[in-house]
């Protein structure tokens, strides 16, 4: 095996299989946005601090600006576009709306994917567990209180119809 500067990658994103030739240097977030046109995943700080680019890879929340697309060959990926279905909001999305858990909205896709990762692994999180689960996601608008309340409400199924 010799090193290559580009390679064929097959990934399942939101249930659909995609195969592309990808440069080794391409970050996953740019692959999602520019190759697959899934622009809901945002680039924020581009240094792994802000979490705006959070997606779920093989059931684990990760920052897609700190992963090469070639590293996820064969993986199953969930992005923000997977949450709403048949025109209806995901309970987390509805809870964010109910609780005014966003203002500018830039961090929201990443925040929702971290929240989904939490509820996928812990159906009844405490407030402290919610706060620790979104520690890697920076919001400069809300002060977090409404985000924490929204995630708690979604966990309890207390969302408006």
């Amino acid at each position: 095996m010799e090193p290559v500067t580009s390679k064929r990658v097959a990934v399942t994103v939101n249930g659909a299989l995609h195969e592309r030739d990808v440069e080794a240097r391409r970050l996953l977030v740019h692959f999602l946005r520019d190759e697959l046109d899934l622009t809901g995943t945002h680039v924020g700080c581009d240094t792994g601090n802000c979490g705006a680019c959070t997606v779920i890879v093989d059931a684990k929340a990760v920052k897609s600006c700190m992963l090469l697309a070639v590293q996820v060959d064969g993986a199953t990926i969930e992005t923000i576009e997977s949450l709403a279905s048949d025109g209806g909001l995901h309970p987390l999305q509805q809870a964010f709306s109910d609780h005014h858990a966003l203002q500018c909205g830039y961090c929201t896709p990443g925040m929702l994917m971290s929240a989904k990762h939490l509820l996928d692994h812990n159906a009844e999180p405490t407030e402290n567990e919610i706060r620790r689960a979104i520690q890697g996601n920076i919001c400069r608008c809300t002060g977090y209180v409404n985000i924490v309340e929204a995630i708690a409400a979604a966990a309890k199924g207390e969302v408006s119809a």
Partner: peptide, 21 residues
Amino acid sequence: MLLSEVGYARPAAVEEAVRLL
């Protein structure tokens, strides 16, 4: 951000990784 061009290898054994390094 666009990284500088880089080669990539994903060896299946430690010996192969060490050889590449």
